[in-house]
Design a protein around this nucleic acid. Structure first.
Lengths: 213, 213
DNA sequence: CGATTCAGTAAACAACTGTTTCCCCGTGCG
DNA sequence: CGCACGGGGAAACAGTTGTTTACTGAATCG
């Protein structure tokens, strides 16, 4: 560990190469899954020799886990933003859906990677994604607990609700991505359907509040 | 095309080899994704030469699509069974969840394949799965339309609800599969959480019915 | 029964994979 | 200023991959 060198061109260059590999991998993963991604494929796309790969990652699985953290750093922003705006009106849902769509258009490759590898063939990556999504669920549950609508809700019930919402977000992301590839319904249709789903869940939440859930 | 020969040992053997390849592929796909599955890998597992593969499939993608139809044939049974039992009680939900869990334990490989490749790296397979799931959604929507609770619901609203339920089923399948690998929560926890989710959705449905959804 | 169809075999192909060993040379420290 | 560190390169390795071509032999059919 070096002191704060002004240039730092040594470690800076290393980080730049590492980032280039992560970016290249993300590109290549748009039309295949992680378990078929080759180490040489990545280095070739970056323009370095296969040996250079080992300076940064032990194997492709290791690179995959690194990608998870990078991709979910972005998602964190999205979730936070979702929670901040509470106009108390029902059109908060429309704002949320629009925000998801914007995020998908801004970071399609990151999100495609997450959606694909969440149930993908590489165990370590599946676990890393699940762990991060679980953090979001607990975070969201904590925010939901503060709302007046949550009186009488136990912690596990709030986590159930949060999990339902997070899964719905992921499904919406997947649907928007499909729309961008002209598979499945168009983006406006996805937005409409997602809005309806969230409204129904909201009604269910309100109805649960009246009696013991 | 031959007449109905008594033995048919010719075509029978062909079908048997084809099925052996599908089964072997399903085995191999438990710990990788379709886009990394090799043609030679499959034939080696079956005990035939690589060339024999071409007598049955054009390429791995083609085999994947065939697997989709085979796997979703089983799922059809599950969906139908889900719909048949309507005790009018709320514990219909518990029956449904138990039925899903039983199905997962009976056909883990098929269901893992579907869950994994639904968002996987092979476009043709993604489309095939989406098409079949869409058929289930419409079928389920048609059944829901017959219930008294659905008065005043438009067709698109019913399809939204059906889509929500089907997605929930798929998520439950995925969670049960994870439980079997000791990733994530245990099977009873998954069952409980799934039940809570379905109850909340049911309440939302009931609440929607009272006024214009 | 003899001719034909066709599932599966055998061998070879160029291309590709992950990994190792050795080397280079620019950066940054003493 | 000279030396060590370490990111990256060169080359070779044993395996593996998908695909082609020519074949064999048993089941089917006229």
């Amino acid at each position: 560990m070096s002191r704060t060198t002004v240039t730092g061109s040594r470690e800076a260059q290393k980080l730049r190469t590492r980032q280039a590999m992560l970016d290249a991998a993300l590109d290549l993963l748009e039309e295949q899954s992680l378990s078929s991604l080759g180490l040489r494929e990545v280095t070739r796309a970056v323009g370095v020799t296969p040996t250079a790969f080992y300076r940064h990652f032990r194997d492709i699985e290791d690179l995959g886990v690194a990608l998870v953290h990078q991709a979910l750093g972005n998602l964190h922003t999205l979730v936070r933003a979702t929670l901040v705006e509470h106009d108390d009106v029902g059109d908060r849902i429309d704002h949320t859906v629009a925000l998801i769509e914007r995020h998908v258009r801004a970071h399609p490759a990151h999100l495609r990677f997450l959606v694909r590898e969440r149930h993908g063939g590489v165990r370590a990556v599946r676990l890393a994604i699940a762990e991060q999504l679980d953090r979001f669920v607990r975070e969201l549950a904590a925010v939901l607990a503060l709302e007046e609508m949550s009186e009488g809700w136990s912690e596990s019930e709030l986590e159930m609700l949060a999990g339902l919402l997070v899964d719905q977000m992921v499904l919406a992301v997947s649907a928007f991505l499909s729309a961008m590839l002209d598979e499945g319904p168009s983006a406006p249709e996805v937005a409409a359907a997602t809005g309806l789903r969230l409204r129904l869940i909201h009604l269910g939440r309100a109805a649960s509040g009246r009696r013991a859930p």
